[in-house]
Design a protein around this nucleic acid. Structure first.
Lengths: 240, 240
DNA sequence: CGGGAGATTGAACGAGTTCAACACACGTGG
DNA sequence: CCACGTGTGTTGAACTCGTTCAATCTCCCG
C-alpha cells in the first residue's frame, strides 16, 4: 500500500529501508475523518503530530469580526508542525476539507524516531523549511501581488506541490477548494475571486470547474503569477 | 555582559548553567555589521545560523517588478532559521536595518549543542514555532484586516516582542523602521501608511515620530488591531 | 421534484493607489 | 557657518481595483 507521507519524505533524500519501515509503522493506524471536521481548534492544547495520508485540510483562523483567513493547505503527505507539542495552545485551527485519512504520531514516539533515524529527522526539518517558505510566499502574494497574480500564483503552487507528490493526472488537478475557501485564502471577496477566475479562464491560462484545475497554458500562468518555484526547494543541497 | 539571545532562550524555560555557558561560548565572537548590509541574499547558499545580538534586521524579498515585501523583523535575541543549512539556496534575503552585532553558529556546532543540551534544543524549537505563529499572524493581517488595523496590529506585536526581551523604556520603543519599510511590510503604499499613522496619531492611540513608537492608549490600540497575543506563545506548556 | 449550497453577474460605492508637489531633517563640503 | 543635496515624511486630487449588496443561476443530492 502506498503511503504519501513516506513518499514525500523519501523524495527529499533517499531514506534507508529501516527508516521507511519505521515511518510505515508509525502511521499504520490511521483514521478516516469526515469532511469539514476540525482536527484541532484554536485554543486547544496540541496533541500528537497529524499526518495527512489521504485528502486535503487547511489551517485557518477566524477573526473576532467573523471573517476567516486560510493560512495554509495540507495535501496528502503533509503533516502539521513537528514540535507543536511544546506549545500550551494552538493559535489557529486545522480543518479537513475532503474526507481524509489521518494518522497521528505521539510526541514521544516522534522524538524517538527522529533520534534513531537521522534521515527522517532531516526530511522532517526540510518539510518544515518548505512550509515556512510557502508561508513567506503567501505573505509576499498578499502584500505585493494583484488579485489576478495572486490567484495565478496560488494555482501554480498547488499544482507543483501536487505534482511533486504524484497527484497530477495529465495536466489536470483535482482541486477540492470552493471559491469561498479560495477567497478566504487569498484575502479577497468570493465575488471578486469569481471574476478573477473568469479573467483567467477567458485569457486561456487556466480553468477551474467542478473541482478540477486545468492549466491550459502553463507558461502564461507562470508569467501572470510571476512564479518562481525556488521557494518550494526541490533542488536540495547535495553536499551534506 | 548581557546576551539577548541567551536571555530570550532562557526566558522560555530556565536553562541550566552549563547550557547558558554553551550559548555564551557559541556566540562569543560576534561581528559589528554596518547598517543596510545584506547578511544573506536570495539565491545564496545558506551558511551558519545567524544570531542578532544587537540591532534589528528584516527578511525581505524583491519581486521581478521591483517591489519589495518585508517578511519578518529580527530583533535582538532573534536568530534565523535553525536548519537553514539543509537548503540549497535562500528564497529570500536578510538585511540589517540598524548597525548590528551578529554572531554566527556553524551548522555542526549547532547540531552538537542541541544534541548535548536538550533545554537549548527545546528553546530553539519554541522560538521557531513562535516565528511561524508570527508569519501566520502576518498572513491573517494582510488578508483580513484594514490598513489601520494592520498597522495597529504590527505595532502591538513589535511592542510586545520588544517588551518580552526587555527592550522597552517606559512606554516608548525605539523603532528604527522608516515609513517606507513599514509600508513594504504591510503591503501598502508609503503615502497611505503615512495617512494611517496620522489617523492613529489623531485618535490618540499611538504616535510614531523620530524613530520612536509611543503607545498613548494601549487598550485602544489593542482594540483597533483586534490584537490577541496568544500567537506569541508566552504561556508555555508546563507539563512536558 | 424540491431544497440548499456554491457560482455568476450587475451596479454603486469606497478603501487604497498614483502622481505630483512640497516640507523637513540631517550630513557634507565649500 | 551657511548652502546644498538627499532621503524621508506630508499633503492634495484624481483615479482604480476590489468590495458590497442584491438578484439570479446551476448543480447536486435527498
Amino acid at each position: 500500500m502506498t503511503n504519501r507521507f513516506v513518499d514525500k519524505l523519501n523524495g527529499f533524500s533517499k531514506l534507508r529501508s529501516e527508516e521507511v519501515a519505521a515511518l510505515f509503522a508509525a502511521t499504520a493506524q490511521a483514521k478516516e475523518i469526515p469532511i469539514k471536521t476540525d482536527l484541532i481548534r484554536e485554543g486547544d492544547q496540541p496533541g500528537p503530530v497529524l499526518v495527512m495520508l489521504k485528502g486535503w485540510a487547511c489551517r485557518y483562523k477566524i477573526l473576532p469580526n467573523g471573517t476567516r483567513q486560510v493560512l495554509a493547505y495540507l495535501m496528502p503527505g503533509d503533516c502539521c508542525d513537528l514540535h507543536i507539542g511544546l506549545l500550551a495552545e494552538m493559535d489557529h485551527s486545522i480543518q479537513v476539507i475532503t474526507p481524509a485519512l489521518v494518522a497521528t504520531i505521539g510526541r514521544l514516539e516522534m522524538d524517538e524516531i527522529m533520534d534513531q533515524h537521522r534521515g527522517i529527522a532531516k526530511a522532517m526539518y526540510l518539510a518544515q523549511l518548505i512550509d515556512e517558505g510557502i508561508m513567506r510566499a503567501w505573505i509576499t502574494s498578499m502584500g505585493r501581488r494583484s488579485s489576478v497574480e495572486r490567484v495565478a500564483h496560488l494555482m501554480c503552487e498547488l499544482y507543483l506541490r501536487a505534482r511533486n507528490i504524484g497527484l497530477i493526472d495529465g495536466d489536470e488537478l483535482e482541486l477540492p477548494l470552493s471559491q469561498l475557501l479560495l477567497a478566504d485564502s487569498l484575502g479577497m471577496t468570493p465575488v471578486h475571486l469569481n471574476r478573477v477566475l473568469k479573467v483567467l479562464r477567458e485569457s486561456q491560462a487556466m480553468i477551474i470547474s467542478r473541482g478540477t484545475l486545468n492549466i491550459k497554458d502553463p507558461r502564461k500562468l507562470v508569467k501572470i503569477a510571476g512564479f518562481d518555484e525556488n521557494y518550494l526547494h526541490r533542488r536540495l543541497r547535495v553536499t551534506v
